[in-house]
């Protein structure tokens, strides 16, 4: 009896010490979930979620302090991915389902004020002071910050056009309702 209690206690103490030491020395410094969430986010640091950048939003998401619907450029696709990763149901009711967009500058209205270029976090807008600006569509991720800041409303958000290279067949229509087999 005493031997049993003693040996179990000894095992308990040893393992407990081991665990304590391991928790101290083998600790993972950041939440691995954060890194996984960060990989799902656009990474363009636009800040429209209300956090400084994507990493901060990912941290808040991992701690359950932010909703999965806050990423503007990511849209529905990113929201769904985040919800799946976190195992929560995303409330997409208030979410406007729109196709991916890129900014477009109407050169007739551009006054070359450079405000949009300073706003853009991916250097997708080129232009110089008092010169017309233009958007490089391949680098624009549609965060719409330039659209909001433009003083002359020269910037519009346009859906990315479908070309012969990007078009593909839609999913076949729902198959005929299954008839019960008797």
């Amino acid at each position: 009896m005493l031997i049993a209690v003693g040996s179990l206690a000894a095992i308990g103490v040893t393992l407990g010490t081991l665990l304590g030491v391991a928790a101290r020395y083998l600790a993972v410094e950041e939440n691995p979930l954060e890194a996984e969430l960060l990989a799902l986010l656009p990474g363009s640091q636009c800040g429209q979620c209300g956090f400084v950048g994507c990493a901060q939003y990912a941290k808040a998401l991992a701690q359950g302090e932010a909703a999965v619907t806050q990423c503007a450029p990511g849209g529905k696709a990113v929201t769904e991915k985040l919800a799946r990763k976190l195992g929560v149901t995303a409330d997409l009711s208030g979410h406007e389902d729109k196709a991916p967009e890129v900014a477009f500058i109407d050169e007739a209205f551009c006054i070359g004020c450079l405000r949009c270029t300073q706003e853009c976090s991916t250097d997708a807008i080129v232009g110089a002071s008092k010169q017309m600006h233009t958007v490089i569509p391949d680098l624009c991720h549609g965060c719409a910050k330039c659209f909001k800041i433009c003083p002359t409303e020269a910037i519009s958000m346009r859906p990315i056009p479908v070309t012969l290279g990007t078009w593909h067949w839609d999913k076949p229509g729902a198959p005929a309702p299954a008839t019960a087999l008797h």
């Binding site: 991916t122 250097d123 680098l139 593909h168």
Partner: peptide, 27 residues
């Protein structure tokens, strides 16, 4: 055909995303 088109589109998006991430880093 739908699945191949859709998967290719996803792949294009991923490539664009990683390019944008790099660009944001540089910025």
């Amino acid at each position: 055909n739908y699945a191949k088109g859709s998967l290719n589109a996803q792949d294009r998006d991923r490539r664009k995303q990683s390019r944008i991430k790099e660009q944001a880093q540089v910025h």
